[in-house]
Simulated assay, not measured.
Amino acid sequence: MKGKIYVADDEKNIRDLIKSFLAEEGHEVVLFEDGESLLEAFYKSEPDIVILDVMMPGMDGFTLCTKIRKKSDVPILLLTARDTDADYITGFTAGCDDYFTKPFSPVKLTMRVNAILKRSFKENNSSQDRELFYGDITINNDLKTFMVNEKQVKLTNTEFELMNYLLVNKERAVSREELLSSIWGYDTVVETRVTDDMIKRIRKKLRENNSIVSIDTVWGFGFKLESRD
């Protein structure tokens, strides 16, 4: 599955590096030197994936991510030279789907892009159940909606993928490595933080909507859905 990818980074060497790896996989890559020019292009034509540098002159990556997320659920990957918890939380709160710290692995970034596009293709062409139910939760794979107590709850694209995967496998515990491999497209132990942080955000949304469903931690292994009904 090949896709159209927008990349914004004020460092030319980074832009060229990303393009070389993604173009080699057959993807169409459009480069931008700043956030404003990417946003202008985005309003005219949406890509399949957006990759943003956080620290850019003018509109920074966090702001750009927030603006894009108001209009679209397109997957957004953030790149940053800063690896603080505050920046990490800000990025995911803005609606990003993954967060790569510079210097990052272009191979891992390419794997993530390929995983996103592959999963999107599978969802659009699979014969899996179009609706999934558990406790007071309903997922509609045709409409891409997540409902709690018949009320729609906004999830990012990757949050939706993760919850969909947990519902499909609701009878068993799912390891962090399995989630990384199935949802993010890689399975190194170093990156398990991304799963834990996303689980925390989904748990918060479940609590805020008084769901009887919880995502329980299976210590030393992963996660499992539980219902209090």
Rank of each mutant, 00 (worst) to 15 (best):
S127T: 14
Q152V: 04
N169L: 06
L167W: 04
I51A: 08
D73S: 11
M111D: 12
L132W: 05
S227W: 02
L79V: 06
T101C: 13
L143N: 12
K170F: 05
T145P: 00
E178M: 05
D98T: 11
N114W: 08
N157L: 07
T156C: 04
A86F: 06
M56W: 08
L77N: 09
E123C: 04
L39Y: 15
T110M: 13
L52T: 07
R228P: 03
E40M: 05
K200G: 02
F146S: 01
E150R: 10
V153W: 00
L155R: 08
T217W: 00
L17Q: 13
S181F: 09
L109P: 03
K122W: 12
L22N: 10
Q128M: 12
N149K: 14
V30P: 01
V189P: 06
L77C: 11
S20E: 11
V218P: 01
R172K: 15
H27R: 01
S105N: 11
E11S: 12
G35Y: 10
S120Q: 14
L64D: 07
E36G: 00
L155C: 04
F62K: 10
P75A: 07
L206Y: 05
E24V: 12
T80K: 05
E28W: 02
S105I: 04
N169T: 05
T63C: 10
D196Y: 04
N125H: 15
P106M: 09
D53W: 08
D129R: 15
E36C: 00
Q128R: 14
P106N: 10
K19Y: 07
N164E: 15
P103E: 08
S227R: 05
A23R: 12
T90L: 15
W219E: 12
K151S: 09
R207I: 12
V190G: 09
F223N: 03
T110Q: 09
L166P: 05
L143G: 00
S72V: 11
P47G: 12
R176G: 11
A41M: 04
I139K: 08
K170S: 15
V168W: 06
M59Y: 03
F223P: 02
M56P: 08
K108T: 14
E24F: 14
E171W: 05
T188F: 07
